[in-house]
Simulated scan of single mutants.
Amino acid sequence: MSSIASFSGFGLGLRRPHYEHFLRGDVPVDFVEVISENFMVDGGSALRTLEDIRATMPVILHGVSMSIGSAHGLDCEYLARLEMLANRIDPLWVSDHVCWTRTSAHNSHDLLPLPYTAEALDVVCDNIDHAQETLGRPMLFENPSSYMVFPEDDMTEWEFISAMSLRSGCYLLLDINNIYVSAHNHGFSADDYIAGLPADRVRQVHLAGHTDGEIKIDTHDQPVCDGVWQLYTKARLLLGDVAVMIERDGDIPAISELLTELGRARTLVDPPAQHAAAVQW
């Protein structure tokens, strides 16, 4: 299995309200990310739009339904459709989540938590091997947000994800908001989480918002909060060249608001003047 080269850039999730901005070529970003399942079709206007945008900038395919933790294995039809899309788009890379979403008869359409056990690690790594062999490329996997733990857990989430990456050869998509949310919900140290990961396996960072409360909920419909910005700043001290993006899926604002957030992500790691022109709107 080949390796994935580092890529340093700042991007946004491509969402329908902003298609026209991207088609005009006036959005100053280095890449876009799309939800893979929205484009795993034979044709249509959405796929044509993605192909047009791909002609001008790199695209990342980010899945939500691979169900890498499914004990009965992966859906071969799903993998075939994903492979077809990847061959058509030639993405920067393909990613999904460290979770399970379905049984053999039912898809929950939710990112459900895994027990962090040696048995679950075997299942996940076998499934990643299957996916990577089918796609012919290494994948990235994202740490989930979670709201429960299993009494059977015999390792931390970051120990599980580290072992998964090193054993399977996959890479990591580090969602800073998910770490922040889960650290609050479960009472662990977000700093320990980040320090415990193999930084050289991280290729991408997500920044998003959540709904506050006694239990924080990862809703992607709010601006990035100060606590997540602070955690991102510390994480970047440990990471090399990575792709950083703002992820917004609900209550989607004007493109200018997202670019302002992306400008903050740039200036927290680079001198402000260096990217001033890129974030003007």
Results as ranks from 00 to 15, higher is better:
Thr219Met: 12
Pro17Trp: 02
Val123Arg: 03
Phe31Val: 04
Val228Thr: 10
Thr260Phe: 09
Asp129Tyr: 12
Thr260Ala: 15
Phe150Met: 00
Leu231Gln: 05
Leu259Asp: 01
Ala118Tyr: 07
Thr156Ser: 07
Val64Thr: 15
Arg16Glu: 15
Gly11Leu: 05
Ile161Trp: 01
Phe7His: 12
Asp212Lys: 14
Met84Lys: 13
Thr134His: 02
Ser182Ala: 10
His186Arg: 09
Ile60Ala: 04
Glu247Phe: 08
Asp226Gln: 15
Asp221Tyr: 00
Thr267Asn: 14
Leu85Ser: 09
Leu82Trp: 05
Pro272Asn: 06
Thr117Tyr: 12
Thr49Ser: 00
Leu121Tyr: 11
Thr267Gly: 10
Arg102Thr: 07
Met245Arg: 06
Pro253Ala: 06
Tyr78Asp: 03
Gln132Pro: 13
Thr233Asp: 15
Val59Lys: 02
Thr211Lys: 14
Ala278Glu: 11
Asn185Asp: 08
Gln230Gly: 13
Leu82Gly: 09
Pro223Asn: 05
Asp96Trp: 04
Glu142Ala: 08
Ala5Cys: 09
Arg201Cys: 12
Gly169Val: 13
Phe188Gln: 02
Ala190His: 10
Ser6Ala: 15
Leu92Tyr: 04
Arg236Cys: 15
Pro28Trp: 01
Gln230Tyr: 11
Ile176Pro: 09
Ser146His: 08
Leu61Glu: 03
Leu166Phe: 10
Asn185Gln: 10
Tyr147Ala: 03
His184Met: 13
His72Cys: 11
Gly73Cys: 06
Leu140Asp: 07
Val34Ala: 01
Leu237Ala: 15
Leu140Asn: 11
Ser6Tyr: 12
Ser65Tyr: 02
Thr260Pro: 09
Ala277Asp: 13
Phe150Gln: 00
Pro253Trp: 10
Ala265Val: 05
Ile128Trp: 13
Ser67Gln: 09
Ser146Cys: 11
Ala276Asp: 13
Pro138Trp: 03
Leu135Arg: 00
Leu79Phe: 02
Thr49Asn: 03
Arg266Pro: 07
Leu23Tyr: 00
Gly187Asn: 08
Phe10Trp: 08
Ala163Glu: 12
Trp281Gly: 03
Gly169Leu: 14
Met57Ile: 01
Thr49Glu: 00
Val242Ser: 12
Gly9Ser: 03
Cys76Ile: 04
Asp251Gly: 15
Asp251Tyr: 12
Asn178Phe: 06
Trp100Thr: 02
Ile179Cys: 06
Ser108Met: 14
Pro151Glu: 10
Leu239Gly: 11
Leu197Ala: 06
Trp158Ser: 11
Pro91Thr: 06
Leu50Arg: 04
Leu172Ser: 11
Ser2Tyr: 12
Tyr193Met: 09
Thr267Trp: 14
His220Gln: 14
Ser165Glu: 10
Asp153Val: 04
Leu237Trp: 13
Gly196Ala: 06
Ser146Trp: 08
Gly69Pro: 14
Met57Ala: 02
Leu262Ile: 07
Val181Tyr: 01
Arg137Val: 01
Cys125Thr: 11
Met139Trp: 03
Arg54Ile: 05
His206Val: 14
Arg81Asn: 03
Asn38Cys: 04
His130Ala: 14
Ala195Gly: 00
Leu172Met: 15
Arg102Asp: 11
Arg88Tyr: 02
Ser256Met: 04
Pro198Ala: 08
Ser70Leu: 01
Tyr193Glu: 06
Cys125Ala: 07
Ser162Arg: 14
Gly187Cys: 06
